[in-house]
């Protein structure tokens, strides 16, 4: 069964870390971790330092460490505006 998808961007001041369709994202909100699926209500939250988890359609979970920033959801578009992102995965930017 394929879960509904939505767009996610993970951006830092220096570069775009991730851009694409996801099924689920979990972010370290300042009030605690929160998970977002497609169709979530509009939301703006501050981020604390913690782990960012992203589930791509049919794929494995991908994880990054973020040091703080913001998370925004509006109209099935989610954006992570992180101060810094690190993790085992770093996508090369052309």
């Amino acid at each position: 069964m394929a879960a509904a998808q939505f767009d996610l961007s993970i951006l830092t001041p220096e570069r775009a870390v991730f851009e694409g369709k996801v099924e689920y994202v979990q972010v370290p909100g300042s009030e605690g971790y929160l998970g977002v699926l497609a169709g979530h209500a509009a939301l703006v939250t501050e981020l604390a330092a913690g782990t960012l988890t992203v589930r791509e359609p049919g794929g494995e979970d991908r994880r990054w460490q973020v040091s703080g920033g913001f998370f925004e959801v509006a109209d099935d578009r989610a954006t992570v505006l992180a101060d810094e992102v690190s993790g085992e995965e770093t996508e090369e930017q052309g």
Binding site: S30, L34, A41, L43, V44, T45, E46, A74
Partner: peptide, 10 residues
């Protein structure tokens, strides 16, 4: 829009 922790701190 849901603001967490709130509009002002954000």
């Amino acid at each position: 829009i849901i603001f967490e922790p709130g509009l002002e701190p954000i």
